[in-house]
Structure formats: structure tokens, C-alpha cells
Computed example of a mutant assay.
Amino acid sequence: MQLNNARILLTGATGGLGQALAQQLAADGARLLLAGRDTARLAALNAALGGEHSSVRADLTRPEGVAAAAGAAREFGANVLINNAGVGGFGLYERQDWDEIDSLLATNLAAPMRLTHALLPWLKARPQAVIVNIGSTFGSLPFAGFAAYSAAKAGLRGFSQALRRELADTQVAVIHLAPRAIDTPLNSDAVNALNRALNNRSDDADAVARQVVAALRAGDGERHFGFPERFFAWLNGVAPTLIDRGLAGKLAVIKQHAPTR
């Protein structure tokens, strides 16, 4: 897709990856509708980008927030939806409160599905449209200590693949992107400590944003970012017991760093 012709609804715009994406997309000529929960931060981001864009305050875990974002996107003339909003969820499953799990599923899976559902008739009527879902390596490589998060991201990947196949006879492309760990405030102190203990690699938000923009330009259906993570994600698909054995040796470290609450 030519980004200078793109009018993009970007959710999670004020997060670490969201801001990096907004800066790179705007620099490439795209017009942005920035969506988030904090009006002041949205205004500050718009000002930093040059004030040529627009914003909508929307809590996408609530029906009225989805309606507000979808209505603003139609008025804006959006032809690209980037479902970027998300929350982390490190913790042993039995110790996590159900409210925390419910919020994680609502933000990472239900919200992008709801917003896509609300906008799909509009996007199908555009001459060209793209839906980009920002997933995670853990959607293809489920990880101990991230059971609910992995489930949500695996669901988002399955949704993306099925929807892409369902829309194959339309002008709407569906792209699923799976970064590995990203250095953003989304990571808690416990997650950062775990990554150090396991020597897990993470990427700068700007570097991930560049890969997202490149995938949007190329129109790729699916990309996994980072090696060896993308190899292990592939291996989990063909020989999951090998991954079971490999992660079993890391379980004690994961439990040591998992929050006690």
C-alpha cells in the first residue's frame, strides 16, 4: 500500500509502540486518526506529529468506545485499521485474579474483533483497505507464565488468518504481525527481570515500528519478527513436545520471577 494515500485508524496510539508507529506513518505521508483512552496524551501526540491528524478518545473494551472509534473512522474516511492496543499479563495462571484475566482478553482479543466487526462493512466499500492486527510471538509460541496472554494472542492470530481467507474475494487485506518482546512501558519490572534472567532478546519500539510499516507497504499476510523466536514459533507448530521439553528447564526461573499475587 502507498502510505501517502492511507488514512489510518491507529489504536493504542499513545503507548510505546503506538507512538513509534504514529511517528513513522506520519513521516511517510499517512494521515492518522489516533485512538486511546487519555485525551491529553492524544492531544500531545497529535501536536508532536504536527497537528495535521485527528484523534478520538475511546475505551475499546466497552461497546460505546467501539462505537465512538468506528464512527470517527468513518467520518475520517479511514481505509486502514491498525489494531495495536494491548496489555501484558505475566503471572502464574492460578494466581491471577479473574478480573485481570478478563481485562486482558477484552483488550487483546475481544476489542480488535469488535472494532473490526464494526468497521468491516465500511472497509469493504473502500477501493482498497487493510486491517493490521499486532499480535505477539507468544501467539505462536505459548509461554509458561503467560497462559492468558498467549491464549489471547493465539486467538488474534487465528482470527486474522480466518478473516484473511474469508475476505479473499474482496479488496480488504488482513495482516497479522507477531513481534517478540518490545522495550516499552508495557513491560512490568517482573517481566524485565525475567527477560534478563532468561537472556530473552527484546527490540526497540522504533525498530518494530519500521518492520510494521514495511509489512504494511508490502502487503504481507503474516510476519514474525526476531530470530530465533520465529524459528521456535515454527517449531512449536510442527513439534510442540520439543518446545515443552525446552521450556521445562526454564520453569523454575519463570516461577521465581512471577508475581506472588
Rank of each mutant, 00 (worst) to 15 (best):
residue 4 N to H: 10
residue 5 N to W: 07
residue 6 A to Q: 07
residue 6 A to G: 02
residue 9 L to W: 05
residue 10 L to G: 06
residue 13 A to K: 04
residue 14 T to M: 04
residue 15 G to V: 13
residue 16 G to N: 11
residue 18 G to Y: 03
residue 18 G to A: 08
residue 19 Q to E: 09
residue 23 Q to K: 13
residue 24 Q to E: 15
residue 25 L to M: 08
residue 27 A to L: 14
residue 28 D to M: 09
residue 28 D to C: 09
residue 30 A to F: 13
residue 37 R to A: 06
residue 38 D to E: 14
residue 40 A to K: 14
residue 40 A to S: 14
residue 43 A to M: 05
residue 45 L to T: 06
residue 48 A to W: 06
residue 50 G to V: 08
residue 53 H to F: 11
residue 56 V to T: 10
residue 57 R to D: 06
residue 62 R to T: 07
residue 64 E to P: 00
residue 65 G to E: 10
residue 66 V to L: 04
residue 70 A to Y: 06
residue 72 A to W: 09
residue 72 A to P: 15
residue 73 A to T: 02
residue 75 E to K: 12
residue 75 E to F: 00
residue 79 N to P: 05
residue 81 L to N: 03
residue 81 L to C: 03
residue 83 N to G: 07
residue 83 N to T: 02
residue 85 A to C: 05
residue 87 V to T: 14
residue 88 G to K: 13
residue 90 F to P: 02
residue 95 R to I: 12
residue 96 Q to W: 08
residue 98 W to Y: 13
residue 101 I to E: 01
residue 102 D to S: 15
residue 103 S to H: 14
residue 107 T to I: 02
residue 108 N to V: 08
residue 109 L to V: 02
residue 110 A to G: 00
residue 112 P to R: 05
residue 116 T to M: 09
residue 117 H to C: 01
residue 120 L to R: 08
residue 120 L to G: 02
residue 121 P to G: 07
residue 121 P to V: 15
residue 122 W to D: 13
residue 123 L to Q: 03
residue 124 K to V: 05
residue 128 Q to R: 14
residue 131 I to V: 09
residue 131 I to P: 09
residue 131 I to H: 02
residue 133 N to Q: 10
residue 134 I to T: 04
residue 137 T to A: 14
residue 139 G to E: 13
residue 140 S to F: 06
residue 142 P to H: 01
residue 144 A to G: 11
residue 145 G to T: 12
residue 146 F to H: 07
residue 149 Y to A: 13
residue 151 A to M: 12
residue 151 A to I: 11
residue 152 A to Y: 09
residue 153 K to T: 15
residue 154 A to S: 15
residue 157 R to I: 08
residue 158 G to D: 03
residue 158 G to Q: 09
residue 159 F to N: 07
residue 161 Q to F: 07
residue 167 L to P: 10
residue 167 L to K: 10
residue 167 L to I: 05
residue 168 A to V: 09
residue 169 D to F: 03
residue 171 Q to R: 10
residue 172 V to C: 03
residue 174 V to R: 00
residue 175 I to E: 00
residue 176 H to P: 05
residue 178 A to W: 00
residue 182 I to F: 13
residue 183 D to E: 09
residue 196 R to G: 09
residue 197 A to G: 08
residue 198 L to M: 14
residue 199 N to S: 13
residue 202 S to P: 02
residue 205 A to L: 08
residue 206 D to Q: 15
residue 207 A to N: 05
residue 210 R to I: 03
residue 223 R to K: 14
residue 226 G to V: 07
residue 227 F to T: 15
residue 230 R to M: 12
residue 231 F to R: 03
residue 232 F to G: 00
residue 232 F to Q: 09
residue 232 F to C: 00
residue 234 W to S: 08
residue 234 W to I: 14
residue 235 L to T: 01
residue 237 G to M: 12
residue 237 G to C: 12
residue 238 V to E: 05
residue 239 A to V: 03
residue 240 P to F: 11
residue 242 L to H: 04
residue 243 I to N: 03
residue 246 G to H: 04
residue 248 A to V: 00
residue 249 G to Q: 10
residue 249 G to M: 07
residue 252 A to Q: 14
residue 255 K to G: 00
residue 259 P to Q: 07
residue 261 R to C: 09
